[in-house]
Amino acid sequence: MPLLSLERVSRDFDVSRPWLNRMLEHEPRRVLRAVDGVSFEVESGETLALVGESGCGKSTVARLIVGLYAPTEGRVVFHGRRLQMIFQDPYASLNPRWRVRDIVGEPIRFLGTGARVEELLVQVGLSADDGDKYPHEFSGGQRQRISIARALGGEPDFLVCDEPTSALDVSVQAQILNLMSDLQSRLGLTYLFISHNLAVVSQVADRVGVMYLGRMVELSPAGMLFSRPRHPYTRMLLDAVPDLGMSGKSRTPVRGEVPNPLAPPSGCPFHPRCPHANDRCRRELPEFIDGVACHAVAERRI
């Protein structure tokens, strides 16, 4: 049994203007579908990464999983003990008026776990007396360690990490990633790792899901995704990674822009940017078959 499964989960947001404006200007309600029919499963002990451009719905998926948002359709099933979350911005995720001891101690006090603040701080590479300090006395990387310590205080078996390193310096990113993989092997944690940085993802992920405009377009084991990407969007993303080896291989530059999610294109959401699109792609939404949602792949055209 998988630790976590999402079954055709969708989430809408009402982005309509205020009622009075709508009445006066005869505007309809506007609904943004941030996540559209996403299904996947996460096995115990693995790291599943979600990648995609800004606004593709990956952070919404993270918040649906931990229950910050309720799904509009579909359901999220969790069979583990407890979920916790690590946030993107270490400058906003710690209450500036609280001492570190109280921040890390909050899940312990509230959830009644047996964890101890000092041990947690040492476990994430801080000192036990750092508990007396306030968050502003720490650097970004140290703050992210505090954030991890707080998440561990709830004694989770599943951690949702929403771009945990994207606000940090590159050198500090590596330290945090090492800490996270260290904790994973020591505590047997399962991660859902959200990122837009493919280099980071290739380092941590066992499997990678690629999202585009609220849909999952490809889900493969990490090695396979990076060596043999199938969906044209995945290929485009990988081609956009800077090639430090200067191997000189030809690459397709990124074409076009992400369409407006309020007015998604008909058929396959990627067709306006896809070099392989045909009439069917413009008409029909592709099924998610065997880890990829693409007509051209299903028809063996590419």
Binding site: R63, V66, G67, L68, L83, Q84, M85, F87, A92, S93, L94, N95, E106, P107, F110, L111, S147, R150, G154
Partner: peptide, 8 residues
């Protein structure tokens, strides 16, 4: 930090 408290 408010979302973190809600997750707890």
């Amino acid at each position: 930090y408010v979302q973190a408290a809600r997750v707890i």
